[in-house]
Protein backbone atom coordinates (compact mmCIF):
# COMPACT_ATOMS: atom_id res chain seq x y z
CA UNK A 1 0.00 0.00 0.00
CA UNK A 2 1.23 3.45 -0.95
CA UNK A 3 -0.36 6.60 0.45
CA UNK A 4 1.01 10.15 0.49
CA UNK A 5 -0.98 13.09 1.82
CA UNK A 6 -0.04 16.68 1.17
CA UNK A 7 -2.03 19.52 2.76
CA UNK A 8 -0.90 21.92 0.03
CA UNK A 9 -1.96 20.40 -3.29
CA UNK A 10 -0.48 23.51 -4.91
CA UNK A 11 3.00 22.02 -4.38
CA UNK A 12 2.12 19.03 -6.55
CA UNK A 13 0.60 21.32 -9.17
CA UNK A 14 3.77 23.40 -9.26
CA UNK A 15 5.98 20.32 -9.50
CA UNK A 16 3.98 19.12 -12.47
CA UNK A 17 4.19 22.56 -14.08
CA UNK A 18 7.96 22.39 -13.60
CA UNK A 19 8.43 19.10 -15.46
CA UNK A 20 5.71 18.84 -18.09
CA UNK A 21 7.44 21.16 -20.54
CA UNK A 22 10.35 18.72 -20.79
CA UNK A 23 8.67 15.37 -20.19
CA UNK A 24 5.56 13.72 -21.60
CA UNK A 25 5.63 10.92 -19.10
CA UNK A 26 7.70 9.96 -16.09
CA UNK A 27 8.08 7.26 -13.49
CA UNK A 28 7.48 8.25 -9.86
CA UNK A 29 9.60 5.91 -7.75
CA UNK A 30 8.08 5.63 -4.29
CA UNK A 31 9.94 4.15 -1.34
CA UNK A 32 10.08 4.53 2.41
CA UNK A 33 12.28 7.60 2.01
CA UNK A 34 9.94 9.44 -0.35
CA UNK A 35 9.12 10.01 -4.00
CA UNK A 36 11.84 10.33 -6.61
CA UNK A 37 11.71 10.98 -10.30
CA UNK A 38 14.51 10.98 -12.80
CA UNK A 39 14.00 11.33 -16.54
CA UNK A 40 15.69 12.67 -19.63
CA UNK A 41 13.84 14.88 -22.08
CA UNK A 42 13.01 13.34 -25.47
CA UNK A 43 16.14 14.63 -27.14
CA UNK A 44 18.41 13.39 -24.28
CA UNK A 45 19.96 16.82 -23.85
CA UNK A 46 18.71 17.45 -20.33
CA UNK A 47 17.79 15.45 -17.26
CA UNK A 48 15.19 16.18 -14.60
CA UNK A 49 15.72 14.86 -11.09
CA UNK A 50 13.14 15.45 -8.38
CA UNK A 51 13.01 14.35 -4.77
CA UNK A 52 10.13 14.71 -2.30
CA UNK A 53 11.12 13.42 1.14
CA UNK A 54 8.62 11.28 3.01
CA UNK A 55 8.98 13.43 6.16
CA UNK A 56 7.77 16.45 4.18
CA UNK A 57 4.36 14.88 3.66
CA UNK A 58 1.58 15.23 6.20
CA UNK A 59 1.06 11.50 6.04
CA UNK A 60 3.25 9.01 4.21
CA UNK A 61 3.10 5.25 3.96
CA UNK A 62 4.94 3.01 1.52
CA UNK A 63 4.95 -0.67 2.46
CA UNK A 64 6.73 -1.82 -0.68
CA UNK A 65 8.75 0.12 -3.25
CA UNK A 66 6.48 1.01 -6.14
CA UNK A 67 7.26 2.62 -9.50
CA UNK A 68 4.36 4.46 -11.04
CA UNK A 69 4.65 5.42 -14.70
CA UNK A 70 2.44 8.42 -15.30
CA UNK A 71 1.33 10.29 -18.39
CA UNK A 72 1.96 13.88 -17.32
CA UNK A 73 -0.73 15.25 -19.62
CA UNK A 74 -3.31 13.05 -17.89
CA UNK A 75 -1.92 13.97 -14.48
CA UNK A 76 -2.21 17.66 -15.39
CA UNK A 77 -5.88 17.18 -16.31
CA UNK A 78 -6.54 15.56 -12.94
CA UNK A 79 -4.64 18.10 -10.86
CA UNK A 80 -6.59 20.89 -12.58
CA UNK A 81 -9.60 19.42 -10.78
CA UNK A 82 -8.03 20.29 -7.40
CA UNK A 83 -8.43 23.73 -5.85
CA UNK A 84 -5.17 25.26 -4.63
CA UNK A 85 -6.28 25.00 -1.00
CA UNK A 86 -7.37 21.36 -1.31
CA UNK A 87 -5.60 18.58 0.53
CA UNK A 88 -4.32 15.94 -1.91
CA UNK A 89 -3.69 12.26 -1.23
CA UNK A 90 -2.07 9.89 -3.74
CA UNK A 91 -2.90 6.23 -3.21
CA UNK A 92 -1.99 2.95 -4.89
CA UNK A 93 -2.19 -0.68 -3.98
CA UNK A 94 0.95 -2.83 -4.27
CA UNK A 95 1.39 -3.95 -7.90
CA UNK A 96 -1.51 -1.76 -8.94
CA UNK A 97 -2.02 -0.55 -12.49
CA UNK A 98 -3.81 2.60 -11.34
CA UNK A 99 -3.16 5.47 -8.94
CA UNK A 100 -5.90 7.41 -7.17
CA UNK A 101 -5.81 11.11 -6.38
CA UNK A 102 -8.15 12.23 -3.60
CA UNK A 103 -8.88 15.94 -3.18
CA UNK A 104 -10.50 17.23 0.01
CA UNK A 105 -11.67 20.79 0.50
CA UNK A 106 -10.33 22.39 3.71
CA UNK A 107 -13.71 22.06 5.45
CA UNK A 108 -14.10 18.44 4.24
CA UNK A 109 -17.42 19.29 2.58
CA UNK A 110 -16.22 18.24 -0.87
CA UNK A 111 -14.21 15.10 -1.46
CA UNK A 112 -13.35 13.97 -4.99
CA UNK A 113 -11.32 11.02 -6.20
CA UNK A 114 -9.78 10.49 -9.62
CA UNK A 115 -8.28 7.21 -10.70
CA UNK A 116 -5.60 7.28 -13.37
CA UNK A 117 -4.18 4.39 -15.36
CA UNK A 118 -0.46 3.82 -14.88
CA UNK A 119 1.97 3.15 -17.73
CA UNK A 120 4.90 0.78 -18.09
CA UNK A 121 7.81 3.04 -18.94
CA UNK A 122 11.35 2.04 -19.77
CA UNK A 123 13.50 2.87 -16.78
CA UNK A 124 16.72 4.56 -17.81
CA UNK A 125 18.44 5.79 -14.68
CA UNK A 126 21.65 7.73 -15.04
CA UNK A 127 24.17 7.70 -12.24
CA UNK A 128 25.12 11.25 -11.26
CA UNK A 129 28.32 11.37 -9.22
CA UNK A 130 28.72 13.74 -6.29
CA UNK A 131 30.53 16.70 -7.84
CA UNK A 132 32.38 19.70 -6.47
CA UNK A 133 31.52 22.50 -8.87
CA UNK A 134 33.95 25.26 -9.84
CA UNK A 135 31.21 27.91 -9.55
CA UNK A 136 27.98 27.93 -7.58
CA UNK A 137 25.72 30.93 -8.14
CA UNK A 138 22.56 31.70 -6.17
CA UNK A 139 20.16 34.32 -7.45
CA UNK A 140 16.48 35.20 -7.19
CA UNK A 141 14.49 32.67 -9.23
CA UNK A 142 12.36 35.41 -10.77
CA UNK A 143 15.48 37.25 -11.92
CA UNK A 144 16.84 34.13 -13.59
CA UNK A 145 13.51 33.54 -15.37
CA UNK A 146 13.52 37.11 -16.59
CA UNK A 147 17.10 36.84 -17.89
CA UNK A 148 16.38 33.59 -19.75
CA UNK A 149 13.24 35.04 -21.30
CA UNK A 150 14.94 38.30 -22.32
CA UNK A 151 18.02 36.63 -23.83
CA UNK A 152 16.07 33.99 -25.75
CA UNK A 153 14.85 36.80 -28.02
CA UNK A 154 18.41 37.22 -29.32
CA UNK A 155 19.75 33.77 -30.00
CA UNK A 156 19.39 30.06 -29.49
CA UNK A 157 22.37 30.01 -27.12
CA UNK A 158 23.16 31.70 -23.84
CA UNK A 159 26.74 32.04 -22.65
CA UNK A 160 27.08 32.01 -18.86
CA UNK A 161 30.38 33.37 -17.51
CA UNK A 162 31.09 33.23 -13.82
CA UNK A 163 33.91 35.06 -12.06
CA UNK A 164 34.36 36.07 -8.44
CA UNK A 165 32.86 39.47 -9.23
CA UNK A 166 29.61 38.02 -10.45
CA UNK A 167 27.90 36.27 -13.31
CA UNK A 168 27.32 37.38 -16.90
CA UNK A 169 24.66 36.03 -19.27
CA UNK A 170 25.11 36.77 -23.00
CA UNK A 171 23.36 35.98 -26.23
CA UNK A 172 23.80 37.02 -29.85
CA UNK A 173 21.86 36.54 -33.05
CA UNK A 174 20.45 38.17 -36.18
CA UNK A 175 19.08 41.26 -34.44
CA UNK A 176 22.17 41.95 -32.35
CA UNK A 177 23.56 40.96 -29.00
CA UNK A 178 22.75 41.24 -25.31
CA UNK A 179 24.74 41.04 -22.08
CA UNK A 180 23.34 40.97 -18.57
CA UNK A 181 25.80 41.25 -15.69
CA UNK A 182 24.84 40.54 -12.12
CA UNK A 183 27.28 41.58 -9.41
CA UNK A 184 27.49 39.76 -6.12
CA UNK A 185 25.22 41.45 -3.61
CA UNK A 186 27.36 43.25 -1.02
CA UNK A 187 24.81 43.72 1.75
CA UNK A 188 22.20 41.04 2.09
CA UNK A 189 19.14 41.80 4.16
CA UNK A 190 17.02 39.15 2.54
CA UNK A 191 18.70 35.98 1.32
CA UNK A 192 16.09 35.48 -1.39
CA UNK A 193 17.04 38.79 -3.01
CA UNK A 194 20.79 38.16 -3.00
CA UNK A 195 23.17 37.19 -5.77
CA UNK A 196 26.04 35.11 -4.39
CA UNK A 197 28.95 33.41 -6.12
CA UNK A 198 31.13 30.68 -4.64
CA UNK A 199 34.02 30.27 -7.04
CA UNK A 200 37.02 27.94 -7.16
CA UNK A 201 37.89 28.89 -10.77
CA UNK A 202 36.15 31.02 -13.41
CA UNK A 203 33.89 29.13 -15.80
CA UNK A 204 32.35 30.04 -19.16
CA UNK A 205 29.86 27.65 -20.75
CA UNK A 206 27.29 27.85 -23.55
CA UNK A 207 23.76 26.45 -23.25
CA UNK A 208 20.61 26.23 -25.35
CA UNK A 209 18.23 28.97 -24.23
CA UNK A 210 15.19 26.79 -24.99
CA UNK A 211 16.08 24.40 -22.17
CA UNK A 212 16.97 27.16 -19.72
CA UNK A 213 13.53 28.65 -20.38
CA UNK A 214 11.89 25.28 -19.73
CA UNK A 215 13.67 25.00 -16.38
CA UNK A 216 12.26 28.34 -15.28
CA UNK A 217 8.79 26.76 -15.24
CA UNK A 218 9.86 25.78 -11.70
CA UNK A 219 10.11 29.43 -10.63
CA UNK A 220 6.90 29.31 -8.57
CA UNK A 221 8.43 26.58 -6.37
CA UNK A 222 11.19 28.69 -4.87
CA UNK A 223 12.40 32.26 -4.41
CA UNK A 224 15.98 31.23 -5.09
CA UNK A 225 17.65 29.24 -7.86
CA UNK A 226 21.13 27.75 -7.68
CA UNK A 227 23.33 27.31 -10.76
CA UNK A 228 26.32 24.95 -10.47
CA UNK A 229 28.95 24.89 -13.19
CA UNK A 230 32.30 23.32 -13.93
CA UNK A 231 34.26 23.30 -17.18
CA UNK A 232 32.98 20.76 -19.71
CA UNK A 233 30.22 19.22 -17.58
CA UNK A 234 26.45 19.77 -17.49
CA UNK A 235 25.00 22.80 -15.73
CA UNK A 236 22.84 22.02 -12.69
CA UNK A 237 19.85 24.30 -12.08
CA UNK A 238 18.31 23.60 -8.68
CA UNK A 239 15.10 24.83 -7.07
CA UNK A 240 14.14 23.83 -3.54
CA UNK A 241 10.60 22.59 -3.09
CA UNK A 242 9.67 24.20 0.23
CA UNK A 243 10.87 22.08 3.13
CA UNK A 244 10.02 18.87 1.30
CA UNK A 245 12.65 18.39 -1.40
CA UNK A 246 14.16 19.76 -4.58
CA UNK A 247 14.06 19.65 -8.35
CA UNK A 248 17.31 19.65 -10.31
CA UNK A 249 17.76 20.09 -14.02
CA UNK A 250 20.99 18.94 -15.67
CA UNK A 251 21.78 20.48 -19.05
CA UNK A 252 24.56 19.34 -21.38
CA UNK A 253 26.58 22.27 -22.70
CA UNK A 254 27.03 23.27 -26.32
CA UNK A 255 30.54 22.33 -27.37
CA UNK A 256 33.00 23.37 -30.09
CA UNK A 257 32.29 21.22 -33.10
Amino acid sequence: MFEARLVQSSILKKVLEAIKDLLNEATFDCSDSGIQLQAMDNSHVSLVSMNLRSDGFDKYRCDRNISMGMNLGSMTKILKCAANEDVVTMKAQDNADTVTFVFESPNQEKVSDYEMKLMNLDQEHLGIPETEYACVVRLPAGEFARICRDLSQFGESVVISCTKEGVKFSSAGDIGSANIKLAQTSNVDKEELAVTVEMQEPVTLTFASRYLNSFTKATSLSNVVQLSMSPDVPLVVEYRIGEIGHIRYYLAPKIED
Binding site: H44, I128, Y250
Partner: peptide, 14 residues
Protein backbone atom coordinates in the same frame (compact mmCIF):
# COMPACT_ATOMS: atom_id res chain seq x y z
CA UNK B 1 29.65 26.59 -34.53
CA UNK B 2 28.77 24.83 -31.32
CA UNK B 3 27.08 21.46 -31.28
CA UNK B 4 24.62 20.42 -28.62
CA UNK B 5 26.03 17.63 -26.47
CA UNK B 6 23.79 14.89 -25.07
CA UNK B 7 23.43 14.30 -21.35
CA UNK B 8 24.35 10.64 -21.80
CA UNK B 9 27.82 11.78 -22.88
CA UNK B 10 28.41 12.79 -19.25
CA UNK B 11 26.42 10.41 -17.08
CA UNK B 12 26.06 6.71 -17.61
CA UNK B 13 23.30 4.22 -17.03
CA UNK B 14 23.11 2.95 -13.47
Amino acid sequence: FRAQAAIVNYYHMD
